[in-house]
């Protein structure tokens, strides 16, 4: 019954076609490349070509990470930012990651609703991903997705993640520049400050700065950042009122140029590459571990540590 013939001939693209269309900036090819990598089809050979291609390429995309708790207005900010960049004639690629249900694997991906009014537009690409398949930490796929977007030569690549914790730290490794978005009067602010993200991001965007409570939050923020060496700058804006957006773009452009000129960008990108190697290793081994634990027999009398060591040795790992 499952093999019921469907009347549609589904689009099948070879890796060669996908790659060729991707580097021409073709949406179908780009979208398919992301799907293939996400589905772990063609992971190695397509990615090899993409990384090799990017390394030789002159054009560099600006990879900007945008993170922050729910309710701070990240989506609105990204939408007005994208709108302003589009007006400058630039090409923008955006990736948003949403959690998936651990029970059914299903996911509701709604981040693009905020930007839908900017479509149709040949210069704007948006892709929603679920966190499906992640085994602790961030899915290495997202890193590779950035490489895919780079191959399509976007001027800006924006990555949006939500939540507090590991994701925020990882997004910093993924991007050239990372902005933490906060808003006045949200309880989560302090959480953010404590989580250490503040020491890693390049700038803090104070959204909704037109609200009367904004100055107090900036005050709290300043008292924290003063304790941090090379503390991030704070930019105040109101995405909703579209105030301060041009200043934000100017800041990002200048900062990016500065990083490029003083060689930090190159260094960051090398770090990113190394981090991604580690990511893949963790992911692959993590999956194997997951399988082992799921299937493993329970022996309450044995020490779990011993089992772990002996199994890893069996797998050929030095421990």
């Amino acid at each position: 019954m499952r093999n019921k013939v469907s009347k549609k001939k589904r689009l099948v693209l070879t890796e060669e076609e996908v790659f060729r269309r991707l580097i021409q900036g073709d949406e179908v090819g780009l979208a398919r490349a992301l799907s293939m990598i996400y589905r772990e089809e063609a992971t190695s050979s397509l990615l090899s070509r993409i990384y090799a291609y990017n390394a030789d390429k002159k054009h560099k995309s600006k990879v900007i990470g945008i993170t922050g708790a729910g309710g701070v207005g990240k989506s609105t900010l990204i939408s007005v930012l994208a709108e302003a960049l589009l007006k400058k004639g630039l090409r923008i690629g955006i990736i948003a990651v949403d959690p998936s249900s651990p029970k059914t694997g299903g996911a509701l991906l709604g981040d693009r609703i905020r930007l839908q009014h900017l479509f149709p537009n040949p210069n704007l690409f948006f892709r929603s991903f679920s966190s499906r398949g992640m085994v602790g930490g961030i899915n290495p796929f997202i890193f590779d997705a950035v490489a895919v977007l780079e191959a399509a030569s976007f001027d800006y690549i924006i990555i949006e993640t939500l939540g507090i914790g590991q994701d925020e730290i990882d997004i910093v490794h993924m991007c050239d520049l990372t902005a933490l978005v906060i808003a006045p009067g949200l309880g989560d602010d302090v959480q953010f400050l404590k989580s250490g993200v503040i020491e890693l991001v390049d700038l803090i965007v104070m959204n909704k700065s037109d609200l009367p409570t904004a100055s107090r939050t900036v005050g709290i923020l300043n008292s924290y950042t003063r304790m941090v060496e090379n503390h991030p700058d704070i930019i105040k804006l109101s995405a909703y009122k579209k105030q301060g957006i041009m200043e934000l773009i100017e800041y990002i452009d200048n900062k990016w140029q500065e990083l490029l000129d003083n060689g930090s960008l190159e260094k960051r990108r090398m770090e990113r590459w190394k981090f991604q190697v580690g990511n893949w290793m963790r992911y692959i081994i993590g999956k194997r571990i997951h399988k082992f634990v799921e299937k493993g027999e329970v022996n309450p009398k044995a020490s779990p540590y011993e089992i772990a060591i002996s199994t890893l040795k069996e797998w050929g790992c030095e421990v």
């Binding site: 609105t76 709604g110 009014h117």
Partner: peptide, 9 residues
């Protein structure tokens, strides 16, 4: 200006 809704399912 025009209203853009928050994302709620």
């Amino acid at each position: 200006g025009e209203y853009r809704p928050p994302v709620i399912f």
